[in-house]
């Protein structure tokens, strides 16, 4: 087994050995369900799809994913186990990748547990399950993008509160960059920046997935986004290991 997978396996088991996993999953499921049925008007809109659900998931991830990543490296530093992990014979990027994969798999588990929603729409009508599937894929990619940002921020600071706040702020920038408020404001004043804002927007890319559009360029975007922040994570870690 690749070292990254061994690290990921240990990490994932660690989530479930502490209350972190259960609190995260319960809060995520309660909020996702509640928001979909109340603010999302799940029944009133009379359509058999999961649009209201997909509209809220990125906003939930905006707060819940940084809560997951804030302890990623900070906890290793606090316990001193970072010294153990990075003196085991594995390349450093494998440790970075392993931690990311564990957190990502954990988000995937949380998403999978929203399956009653899929069952519900299938009982009530004939939804396009392809669109639902691509929506879930989009959610997973947004989670991955936010995780990569949060993990890199966590490598920068020992303080978990700072890691959380900075990660939320950064994720918000990437989440909101493509929203009409931001792009309209920019296009009237700085049209060049408006294009850039749309270009780096996670939400903009996610929109395609919720409409059932799985475009290669969006997949490339998420892959390079995650890759870039994991690379940043490894570089930061290398310079600030002992702090």
């Amino acid at each position: 087994m690749a070292p990254a997978l061994i690290v990921a396996r240990r990490e994932l088991a660690g989530y479930f050995a502490t209350p972190v996993a259960y609190v995260f999953i319960v809060i995520f499921l309660v909020l996702a369900g509640a928001l979909t049925f109340t603010l999302g008007n799940f029944f009133e809109r009379g359509q058999a799809d999961l649009q209201p659900f997909f509209a809220f998931v990125p906003w939930l991830f905006l707060f819940l994913v940084p809560a997951l990543t804030m302890r990623l490296w900070a906890e290793e530093r606090r316990l001193g186990t970072i010294e153990l992990l990075l003196t085991l014979p594995l390349p450093q990027w494998q440790a970075v990748l392993g931690k990311f994969l564990a957190a990502w798999a954990f988000c995937a588990i949380a998403l999978l547990l929203t399956f009653p929603l899929v069952v519900t729409v299938n009982l009530l009508g004939q939804p396009d399950n392809g669109v639902i599937l691509s929506g879930y894929l989009g959610c997973l990619l947004v989670a991955g993008a936010y995780l990569a940002v949060g993990a890199a921020v966590s490598a920068m600071t020992k303080n978990q509160v700072i890691a959380f706040v900075l990660a939320v702020a950064l994720c918000f920038v990437f989440g909101a960059a493509g929203s009409p408020v931001v792009t309209e404001f920019l296009s009237t004043r700085l049209p060049v920046l408006a294009d850039i804002a749309r270009g780096i927007s996670v939400a903009e890319r996610f929109g395609g997935f919720t409409r059932g559009l799985v475009a290669a360029r969006d997949l490339v975007f998420f892959a390079s986004f995650i890759g870039f922040f994991l690379f940043l994570n490894a570089v930061v870690l290398d310079h600030r290991k002992a702090d």
Binding site: A13, A17, L79, G80, T87, L88
Partner: peptide
């Protein structure tokens, strides 16, 4: 690192793991 056994200052370990689980993790990485 393959040739080295290192005990860091304070002997840090993952608190939630069992002794066997922890040693198996180190062994698998090795």
């Amino acid at each position: 690192k393959r040739h080295l056994g290192f005990l860091p200052e304070g002997a840090p370990t993952y608190p939630e793991m069992t002794v066997t689980g922890f040693l198996e993790f180190a062994g698998r990485i090795r």
